[in-house]
Design a protein around this nucleic acid. Structure first.
Length: 362
DNA sequence: TCTGGGGTCCTAGGACCC
DNA sequence: TCTGGGGTCCTAGGACCC
C-alpha cells in the first residue's frame, strides 16, 4: 500500500510557521539571532502584567513558553531579549506568506497569522507527490521570507494539524491513512484541537491519558460526560474529521476590545474613563467595517480574577456611538460602583449586520 | 507562578410565541 | 384551571483557539 492511495483519500497540508513573531524579529534584527528572544508584554523587572506571545527556541531552553505570565518568563531568564511586538510587521510578513501558499492550491484556509491549511488532493496523485510539493513550499517561504515552517500532511485537517506540530522546528511529518491509528495512539489527548486544559484534566480523571485511550473508551460514556462534544472527541481520537479546507464565509460575529489596568483600581472615574475609551475603539472598528450592531456586552474582571459579563440586545440595529456608550455604561453599573478592584474591562458588540448599500467586508 | 487580547462555539435556562 | 411541544431569541458562563 505504501506510496499509493485511493482517489477518495484527501491530502491535506497544515503549514505552521516556527515561532513566527520572534522569527520576524530575528529577520528584521539579525543581531538578535542566537539569543533568547521573547515577544510579549513588558516584563518590568518581573512585575509586568500579561503573557508571552511567543519566544524562540533559545528562550524555550530556559523553560519559557507562549501563554506563560511574563513575570514567570522573567524569573526563568532575565537576560533574554524582551520585545513588545510589531504587529504591523507580522501582518505584512503573514500576508506575503499566505500569498505564496495560495498559489499552491485554491483550497486554502488561513488559520491565524501563522498557520494555514491547503487541500492538495486534486493536484497530487499520492502522499509522495504531496511531500515534494510541501518541500517546495518550505523552500519558497525560506527563500523569500527567511523564515522556516513545519508542515504536516494527512488525510484530513485534524491529522495534518497534529502532524505539523510533531517535529518542530523546520519539520515535515507525513501521516498516511494507514498510519493514522499508529500515529495518534501514543500522543497525549491534549494534542487534539478542542481539548484544552480543563477537558484534559477531566479525561485524566477518567484514566484517559493518550489519544489511544480516548479512542478505546466508550463513546456513550463520553457523550454522557461531555454531551455532544464527547462524541466529537471520540471521532477525533479515531482520526475522523470531515471538515473542509475553506475560508470562513460571511461577516464576522463580533467586534470587541478589552484592557487590563496596569494596577487594579476601584477609582470610579478611572474605570468610567477607560470604559469610554474602549467604547470609542469598538465604535471605530465597527464603523470602519460598515457594521451595525444590536447586542452590547460588557466584561469585567476583578482583582481575584472573578469575571462576569452583562449583555443587552437592543430592539434595533445601530451604529451610534451614543447608543453604545450609554448601553455599556448601564451594563457596567456594578463595576463602576467601586466596591471591588477592577482588573480588566472589555466591551464587545455582536448581532452584526452590514449597513445598507455597503460592500461586504469580512 | 499569577494568569493578554482578539475571537468562536457550545450549553443551559428562561421568556415568549404559535 | 392546568397544561402539550416545537421553535427562536436572549442572557450568562465557560472552554478553547491563535
Amino acid at each position: 500500500m505504501k506510496g499509493s492511495c485511493n482517489r477518495n483519500t484527501r491530502i491535506i497540508l497544515h503549514i505552521d510557521m516556527d515561532h513566527f513573531f520572534s522569527a520576524c524579529e530575528e529577520r528584521e534584527h539579525p543581531e538578535l539571532k542566537g539569543n533568547p528572544v521573547v515577544v510579549g508584554a513588558e516584563p518590568k523587572q518581573g512585575r509586568g502584567r500579561g503573557v508571552v506571545k511567543t519566544c524562540n527556541y533559545e528562550a524555550r531552553e530556559f523553560g519559557i513558553q507562549s501563554g506563560m505570565p511574563i513575570s514567570t518568563a522573567w524569573r526563568l531568564c532575565p537576560n533574554a531579549i524582551y520585545v513588545r511586538g510589531n504587529y504591523r510587521l507580522y501582518k505584512k510578513v503573514s500576508e506575503r506568506i499566505m500569498a505564496i501558499l495560495k498559489k499552491y492550491s485554491e483550497r486554502f484556509q488561513r488559520w491565524g497569522l501563522d498557520e494555514a491549511f491547503l487541500d492538495v488532493s486534486l493536484m497530487t496523485k499520492d502522499f509522495e507527490e504531496a511531500t515534494k510539493l510541501a518541500e517546495s513550499i518550505k523552500h519558497e517561504i525560506l527563500w523569500n521570507e527567511g523564515i522556516t515552517c513545519s508542515i504536516g500532511i494527512g488525510p484530513n485537517k485534524l491529522i495534518a494539524k497534529i502532524a505539523s506540530g510533531h517535529e518542530k522546528p523546520d519539520g515535515m511529518t507525513v501521516v498516511r491513512e494507514d498510519d493514522v491509528e499508529r500515529f495518534l495512539a501514543p500522543l497525549p489527548v491534549q494534542r487534539i484541537v478542542g481539548i484544552g486544559e480543563k477537558t484534559t484534566a477531566k479525561l485524566h480523571g477518567m484514566g484517559i491519558k493518550t489519544i489511544g485511550d480516548l479512542a478505546a473508551f466508550s463513546a456513550s460514556i463520553l457523550a454522557q460526560k461531555f454531551g455532544a462534544m464527547g462524541m466529537r472527541y471520540h471521532q477525533y481520537a479515531l482520526g475522523l474529521s470531515e471538515s473542509d479546507v475553506g475560508e470562513r464565509r460571511g461577516i464576522r460575529k463580533s467586534i470587541g476590545h478589552e484592557c487590563t489596568f496596569a494596577v487594579d483600581t476601584d477609582a470610579r472615574d478611572v474605570v468610567s474613563r477607560r470604559l469610554v475609551d474602549i467604547c470609542c475603539k469598538v465604535y471605530q472598528r465597527a464603523t470602519e467595517k460598515n457594521l451595525l450592531f444590536k447586542t452590547v456586552t460588557v466584561k469585567v474582571r476583578y482583582k481575584n480574577f472573578h469575571t462576569f459579563t452583562h449583555s443587552r440586545t437592543l430592539s434595533f440595529f445601530t451604529n451610534s456611538s451614543q447608543n453604545l456608550r450609554k448601553t455599556a455604561e448601564e451594563l457596567a453599573q456594578d463595576a463602576l460602583s467601586g466596591k471591588e478592584k477592577v482588573r480588566l474591562l472589555g466591551v464587545r458588540v455582536s448581532n452584526l449586520k452590514l449597513a445598507k448599500g455597503q460592500r461586504i467586508l469580512i
